[in-house]
Design a protein around this nucleic acid. Structure first.
Length: 553
RNA sequence: UGGGGUAUAGCCAAGUUGGUAAGGCAGCGGGUUUUGAUCCCGCGAUUCGUUGGUUCGAGUCCAGCUACCCCAGCCA
């Protein structure tokens, strides 16, 4: 697709351009630092496109770093899935994958340095005591009774902590900053805690793990990150980020900049909630096509280019936002409209019998794979006496706004002939099951010779050659634009978010090499990657002004 | 008077030495069309949360006010 015709501009890129121009940096280093405690979602794609996009556009580098300082919440399966997702989006990190855990030795050394400088102490207060002494948003906290322990004793205590001589929760290492700070995160923050847990990278080597605020800035400095980009909720944390860098012996001075996280209407984008959806089986796994995860979106049929384009269109600012689904849908339609070959599929079939077409015979018709791009070639489709058409495309009677098949009226069969409906057959409930018609043999590839106009065109599948197929039609996962705003977000889960249809597809699809198609007049589809046989996921429907009109009237 | 942030069209978003409101999505008209698709053409802010001030001139500078978001995990 015509992607990134114009480079995006945003306040972060402007800062970088100014830094380059003022020689603050000679090259740019960014990083994408997920914690491997869940799958990546479309919100992460925004951060990925920002970080890797900047590296690409300014001849810089971008690292992939797993921020794995909390082994109890993390898992190796997530580190693998995350790498796959980043690559799928079309990005390659610089060098090897990095891990915060890879810096545990250095981190520990810097913690000791802080203790030596009298800037950190081991606190044996209970968690409750620490919380109570922290004060409130409006009232200052009070110093811990352990705050003035001597350097010697602290060194010894931290050593014992590290050696596993204290139980979890018995003590922790705190930075000595200011219990009266208006920034809560500066009130002697905990920087190391005890966890007797297996770590997916370091195994049983450690029983003390550094906290995020202590780890992230140092990891950035170690990797020579110049611009550390994160979301708005870390704005206060920047003070602690800078404090750590200033108080340890490290050369680099990475700078943190914050942008607003993505919110998308009718879905949730927080790992906690996504985990809940999976664990409570509200969806069928992380890659359920209704999920806003990269894996789900991929299985739904979105392309990497469409996600990148989406990230370009939404921009990067500090404003809270809630982007409409329509924005995402427009991106995938733009891509697939241009690149997806066309085909025909009938999702809810009724039979059309062409009574004046010879029984037992069949002919090959040639259909273009794209109406506006001859380079995409043609394909053969068979036509015979009995074909499937969409139940929605026939009515016994209708006003002339209905441009489809009506009893005693004509319609064009896409890529084939003009037919006229003569009579119908119904089932016990009165639903039309078969329409009997006659065709005009002289209308293949041309209008009727007598000049009569046939304005409707409907799609179809040859009944003798078409293959049965399953179609999964997805709708928004939630009924509320902002489900996360409700007390219980699962209460607004859309019970009709998945609709399965049994129909037919043209035979050419069976051994097609394409991965996405536009089934003409019904939408964009892809083969479901986890299903056997012909199972198609509808990525997104076509824009449908007719449906809109009908709804309105 | 805790602190940190943000306020430009239904949604996203440009606007940077103050000079007279980009673009995209959505929507609405019209044209083309063997997809009610695509494509093409046209339409939207006398106004930038609000009230004042400075100025010849303010979305851009100053002051006050209001709304919303974030912070009291040994989570990230």
């Amino acid at each position: 697709m015509a992607e990134t015709e114009h480079r995006p501009t945003n306040f972060i890129r402007q800062i970088i351009e100014a830094d380059l121009e003022n020689k603050v940096h000679s090259s740019i280093q960014t990083r994408f630092p997920p914690e491997p405690n869940g799958y990546l979602h479309i919100g992460h794609a925004k951060s990925i496109c920002l970080n890797f996009g900047i590296a690409q556009d300014y001849q810089g580098k971008c690292n992939l770093r797993f921020d794995d300082t909390n082994p109890t919440k993390e898992d190796i399966s997530y580190v693998n899935a995350i790498q796959e997702d980043v690559r799928w989006l079309g990005f390659q990190w610089d060098g090897d994958v990095r891990y915060s855990s890879g810096y545990f030795d250095q981190l520990h050394g810097y913690a000791v340095e802080l203790i030596r400088k009298g800037l950190a102490f081991v606190d044996f207060s209970s968690q409750d005591e620490i919380r109570e002494n922290r004060g409130t948003l409006k009232a200052p906290g009070v110093n811990s009774p352990y705050r003035d322990t001597s350097v010697e004793e602290n060194l010894k205590a931290f050593e014992k902590m590290t050696a596993g001589e204290y139980a979890e929760g018995e003590c922790c290492l705190r930075a000595k900053i200011d219990m009266a700070s208006s920034f809560m995160c500066m009130r002697d923050p905990v920087i190391y805690r005890i966890k007797f847990a297996h770590h997916h990278q370091t195994g049983e080597k450690w029983c003390v793990y550094p906290m995020y605020d202590f780890t992230h800035c140092i990891s950035d400095a170690i990797e020579n990150v110049t611009h550390s980009l994160c979301t708005l909720e870390f704005q206060d944390n920047r003070r602690l980020y800078d404090w750590v860098i200033e108080n340890i012996s490290i050369e680099a001075t990475p700078r943190q900049y914050e942008f607003s996280r993505l919110n998308l209407e009718y879905t949730v984008l927080s790992k906690r909630k996504l985990i809940q959806l999976v664990e409570e089986n509200h969806v069928d796994g992380w890659d359920d096509p209704r999920m806003p995860t990269i894996a789900g979106i991929r299985r739904r049929g979105y392309t990497p280019a469409s996600i990148r384009e989406f990230c370009r269109r939404i921009g990067v600012t500090k404003m809270d936002n809630q982007v409409e689904m329509g924005m995402l849908e427009a991106c995938i339609r733009d891509d697939l409209n241009e690149n997806a070959p066309r085909a025909m599929a009938v999702l809810e079939p009724i039979k059309l019998v062409i009574e004046n077409y010879p029984e037992g015979e069949s002919e090959n018709l040639v259909a273009p794979n794209h109406p506006n791009n001859d380079a995409m070639g043609t394909r053969n489709i068979t036509f015979s006496r009995e074909i499937w058409i969409e139940a929605d495309d026939f009515r016994e009677s209708a006003n002339k706004k209905f441009k489809r098949l009506v009893l005693d009226k004509e319609v064009r069969l896409r890529n084939a002939y003009v037919v006229r409906a003569n009579r119908v057959e119904k089932d016990a409930e009165g639903n039309v099951t078969t329409v009997f018609c006659t065709y005009d043999a002289d209308t293949l590839g041309k209008d009727p010779a007598d000049g009569r106009k046939v304005k409707g065109v409907i799609h179809w599948v040859d009944a003798s050659a078409g293959r049965p197929a399953t179609f999964r039609l997805y709708d928004r996962l939630f009924t509320l634009p902002n489900p996360a705003g409700a007390e219980d977000f699962t209460a607004s889960i859309n019970p009709d978010s998945l609709l399965e249809k049994q129909g037919y597809v043209e035979a050419s699809l069976v051994d097609s090499e394409a991965s996405n198609w536009q089934f003409e007049r019904t939408g964009y589809f892809c083969r479901d990657s986890k299903s056997e046989g012909l199972v198609f996921n509808r990525t997104v429907g076509l824009r449908d002004t007719w449906a809109k009109m009908e709804q309105g009237s």
